[in-house]
């Protein structure tokens, strides 16, 4: 039996803002796993991840990151985590190089290693030529890449990404996805929320679907198909069926007739 701690263990997590936002969620994510967390707007995805990142205190429940209790040892837990929200956490008046130096300093990295990582990341994300430019002049895609470099520079063991591809063009989105896959292959555990189901289908090893603060289903795409009773369905079909059943709303997958290919000329 493998005694290595889980990358993320969440037990009976609850958070209420007047009404329950997260309502008894359990998650078990293994080291090196790429986990996709899907759900409609207001399902509780971001609230769950903000609690994992230490930005919100849960009302009830326990969160452990690689065996470290996030509430009891927040600083030790934060050393292992990188949090990347949908809006870039960036100082517009700093250059990318200064931003990375700042992050590396906050995480107490040894300078030589931080420089090496920064150089690699900037070149990999095609920001090397822009390293001495202030971020205020960057496009959204460049800002998102700079923030991703900041999240990866301190070599986190758990990378949490909330809608990382929002507003990115196809080229930059591809760069980001490739880098994330590369990191996952090298052992980094990644949790990603997205509304682009194709991204989750392509990248994630396992997918969790939440709605109204509850985890409705979890597993590989094949396991989710079985749960939803839709053997040949796409992730979109499975998602809509499960969310529709979970929330009691009558959301049905689109019929083949509704797809553009099936429309009459």
């Amino acid at each position: 039996m493998n005694d290595a701690p889980l990358a993320l263990a969440v037990r009976d997590l609850r958070k209420s803002f007047g009404r329950p936002a997260v309502d008894g969620i359990d998650l078990s994510i293994r080291p090196g796993e790429f986990y996709g967390l899907l759900g409609p707007n207001g399902a509780g995805k971001t609230t769950t991840l903000r609690m994992v990142a230490g930005l919100l205190k849960p009302d009830v429940g326990r969160i452990e990151v690689f065996g470290v209790d996030v509430q009891r040892e927040p600083i030790a837990a934060k050393r292992l985590i990188a949090w990347l929200p949908d809006e870039p956490l960036l100082y517009n008046k700093l250059t990318v190089a200064e931003y990375l130096e700042f992050i590396a300093g906050l995480w107490g990295m040894e300078p030589a290693r931080a420089e090496r990582n920064a150089r690699e990341l900037l070149k990999r994300l095609e920001l090397w030529a822009h390293r001495d430019e202030r971020c205020e002049g960057f496009s959204r895609g460049m800002k998102q890449k700079a923030v991703l470099a900041g999240a990866l520079i301190h070599e986190p063991k758990l990378l949490i990404l909330d809608e990382p591809l929002t507003g990115l063009d196809a080229g930059i989105a591809r760069q980001v996805k490739d880098l994330l896959l590369e990191r996952a292959r090298s052992g980094c555990t990644i949790i990603l929320t997205t509304h682009i189901l194709e991204v989750a289908e392509r990248l994630a090893d396992r997918i969790g679907i939440i709605a109204s603060g509850k985890l409705l289903a979890e597993g590989t795409l094949a396991e989710l198909r079985t749960t939803a009773g839709d053997a040949g369905g796409t992730l979109e079909d499975v998602f809509l069926r499960l969310v529709g059943a979970g929330t009691g709303s009558a959301i049905e997958p689109a019929s083949p007739l509704a797809t553009p290919q099936a429309l009459p000329p």
Partner: peptide
Amino acid sequence: RSRRPAITELRFAGTPRRVLIRKEIRL
């Protein structure tokens, strides 16, 4: 105006306190 690309090498050297102070003053 954004600064033009320079040809500086990366030189990181900072404790959390130092990078925080430097960041605030730069901003």
